[in-house]
Amino acid sequence: TIDEIIKALEQAVKDNKPIQVGNYTVTSADEAEKLAKKLKKEY
């Protein structure tokens, strides 16, 4: 679900690790936030 994706992003940001979500690779908190907002609009 979208919530699980967002939790995974938040965890990756805390661990400061890049995370791959679908076609996106998120490497920073800023990118994670942008991706989360984008995904919320889509779903």
Rank of each mutant, 00 (worst) to 15 (best):
K40G: 05
T27N: 14
V13A: 13
K38S: 06
I2V: 08
E31D: 08
K34H: 09
K41L: 14
A29W: 07
L35A: 01
N16R: 08
E33K: 12
D30H: 09
G22D: 05
K34V: 11
I2M: 08
A8Q: 10
K7N: 05
L35W: 07
V21W: 10
A12Y: 14
A12G: 05
I19L: 09
A36N: 01
E31S: 02
K37N: 13
Y24C: 13
K14T: 07
L39M: 04
V13W: 11
V21M: 05
T27E: 11
S28E: 03
L39H: 00
V21K: 00
D30M: 11
D3K: 11
A29M: 07
E4F: 11
I5G: 00
T25A: 08
I6V: 05
K34P: 01
A29F: 05
A12E: 01
I2Q: 01
L39Q: 00
A8D: 03
L39G: 00
L35K: 00
I2Y: 11
Q20A: 08
K17W: 15
I6R: 01
E4Y: 11
N23T: 09
A29I: 08
L9G: 02
D3Q: 13
Q11M: 10
K41A: 14
E31C: 10
K41R: 13
I19F: 11
K7M: 11
K34L: 13
K17G: 04
T27W: 15
I5M: 08
Y24I: 10
I6M: 07
D30Y: 13
N23M: 11
D3I: 12
E33V: 09
I5N: 01
E42V: 12
I2C: 14
K38E: 11
I5T: 01
E10I: 12
L39C: 07
A8T: 06
V13E: 02
I5Q: 02
I5R: 02
L9N: 01
T25F: 15
P18C: 14
A36K: 04
E33D: 10
K38Y: 15
V13S: 08
E33M: 14
T25E: 07
K37L: 14
A29P: 05
Q20T: 14
Y43G: 06
A32G: 03
Q20G: 03
N23C: 15
Q11E: 07
N23G: 15
V13F: 09
V26Q: 02
K14A: 09
E10V: 07
G22N: 06
K17F: 15
Y43L: 12
I19M: 09
I19N: 01
S28T: 13
E33P: 00
A12I: 09
